[in-house]
């Protein structure tokens, strides 16, 4: 059942954009890497298109990799039961750690993007209120990055 749905959504996306990169990270969900320039356009299409109707974002994860930061969007359709995982990568971990916001498409992303900004330092262009969420305003650095060293509070073990 799930396998059929997965093949289904894969076929739809390949029909739209033939050269997107599918990863085999997850055995359960179809995972697709989207170029950051078309992220917003792609997610909007996934949400509004009759074939996909992925209207529910059930998770948004930020991950720190050596060369870039990655944001993983878990999407589900409340009507069709399809699930798709979309990944977007920033250009680098420094000045260009920027992605477009999707908080106007999925309102839940408003909080989630603030969390990712706070803990990983991805700046979401167009977010209405991009402030730190958990840490204080004067905190230096982003603790979930792999190279973060907290000498005062000893996070590293």
């Amino acid at each position: 059942m799930n396998k059929m749905k997965n093949e289904n959504i894969k076929a739809i996306i390949q029909d739209w954009v033939p050269d997107l990169e599918f990863t085999e990270d997850s055995l359960e969900y179809v995972t697709v890497v989207v170029p950051r320039a078309s992220l917003r356009h792609f997610l909007r299409k996934l949400r509004d298109d009759e074939q996909t109707k992925l209207d529910f974002m059930f998770c948004l994860t930020g991950v720190d990799y050596p060369k870039y930061l990655e944001v993983i969007y878990h999407l589900e359709s409340t009507t069709l039961g399809l699930i798709l995982v979309v990944k977007a990568r920033t250009e680098d971990r420094g000045e260009n750690a920027v992605l477009d916001t999707v908080s106007d498409l999925f309102r839940t992303a408003e909080f989630h993007e603030r969390e990712v900004f706070d803990l990983l330092g991805v700046r979401f262009k167009g977010h209405p209120d991009l402030r730190r969420l958990f840490l204080t305003e004067d905190w230096v650095g982003h603790p979930l990055r792999k190279d973060y060293v907290d000498t005062v509070n000893i996070v590293k073990r």
Binding site: V63, D64, H74, F111, H112
Partner: peptide, 25 residues
Amino acid sequence: NIISDGKKSPYRMKFRSPGFSNLSV
């Protein structure tokens, strides 16, 4: 959400908590 790189600890682990999203509304 476990993101594993084959070691004994996850490379990154994310917890999607219900309260966090419910609070945003």
